[in-house]
């Protein structure tokens, strides 16, 4: 156990959490608008491959991240068209999106296995980064880590204080009432789905460009599904998404460090621990039926159709 440096552990926690954090905050907005998109995994892996390919070809991780957001959003357009205009079942369409995304990413990325991504530099925040201990844990990361936290704050403020946030929540809580008030339910949901796709794409690219940083098939390994679980864990509240993602990132980092430290527990059991803990957390959160039902957007997963 002596091999684990708690400082490094805490610092890498934020890096390990960022992909899930990005995907989860995007999905939270989608669900707030009343849409359940189970295709997060597919959009993440598509973002991962788009970001990687573009970053390798241009040599710029920044352009890579932009491409990843575009890729994730592009895939989510398929979901939006099917569920919002053709009124298909959201669960089935989300699953289709994941299966499709896994295939698409494998196809795009086949020539890129074994290449290293261009490095993304850390961006220590002046002054703050020099604080002993805290500075190293919190303020010596790459730009995406800070952006992901800013995104949480932005989503929180938008949902809570702006008119658009209010409309988005109204659409998610009761689409018929929102429609009666004259809001374009389908347009707003379309935008939310696009936002969720872009966030998932960014999260995927964070894995392939910074966390790993390489491309391998199926490299998101369930991160998208965990992001979905974190939205439930967070009871659809932005700051709790942050807590959930960091909690999860902490467990991931800890088990990786335990593996490296050569603990007596077999590697396989350590690597299944994040998934088991996700299940455990879901159980705890869902067990209180009244609270779980209270927080979920009331129109979640229901298709909206005007002429009835």
């Amino acid at each position: 156990m002596g091999a684990i440096d708690p400082l490094v552990l805490l610092a890498s926690l934020m890096v390990a959490s960022t992909p899930i954090l990005l995907a989860a905050i995007g999905e939270m907005v989608v669900e707030k608008a009343g849409v359940l998109n189970l295709g997060v995994e597919g959009m993440m892996i598509t973002g991962a491959v788009c970001g990687f390919v573009i970053a390798v070809n241009t040599g710029s991780p920044t352009i890579g991240f932009v491409a990843a957001a575009a890729g994730g959003a592009g895939l989510s357009v398929l979901f939006a068209l099917l569920t919002q205009y053709l009124l298909s079942n959201q669960v089935a369409t989300g699953l289709a999106l994941t299966l499709f995304g896994l295939g698409l990413s494998a196809l795009i990325g086949q020539g890129y296995v074994g290449i290293k991504a261009p490095a993304t530099g850390d961006l220590p925040i002046p002054l703050l980064a020099d604080i002993p201990i805290l500075g190293r844990i919190l303020f010596q990361h790459d730009l995406m880590v800070y952006l992901s936290i800013a995104l949480i704050a932005g989503v929180w403020a938008t949902l809570k204080y702006t008119r658009f946030g209010l409309i988005l929540r109204a659409v998610g809580e009761n689409h018929d009432a929102a429609h009666a008030l004259g809001y374009k339910v389908v347009h707003i949901r379309f935008l939310a789905i696009l936002f969720g796709g872009a966030c998932a794409g960014l999260g995927g690219a964070y894995i392939s460009l910074i966390r790993v940083p390489q491309w391998t098939e199926g490299m998101t390994a369930g991160a998208g599904w965990i992001a979905l679980a974190i939205v439930v864990f967070a009871s659809w509240k932005p700051w709790r998404v942050l807590i959930g993602a960091y909690l999860f990132g902490g467990i991931t980092v800890l088990q990786l460090n335990l593996q490296a430290a050569g603990l007596k527990i077999p590697v396989e059991y350590l690597s299944m621990s994040p998934y088991l803990i996700t299940i455990l957390v879901l159980v705890i959160i869902s067990a209180d039926r009244s609270r779980a039902a209270l927080n979920a957007p009331a129109s979640l997963g229901r298709s909206f159709h005007t002429s009835h």
């Binding site: 298909s88 369409t93 699953l95 299966l99 295939g103 494998a106 196809l107 086949q110």
Partner: peptide, 16 residues
């Protein structure tokens, strides 16, 4: 991977 993609596509078209 192209086949995997084809299978995913099939489900999409079906839902559409």
């Amino acid at each position: 991977a192209a086949i995997q993609l084809l299978q995913g596509m099939l489900l999409f078209f079906l839902l559409a």
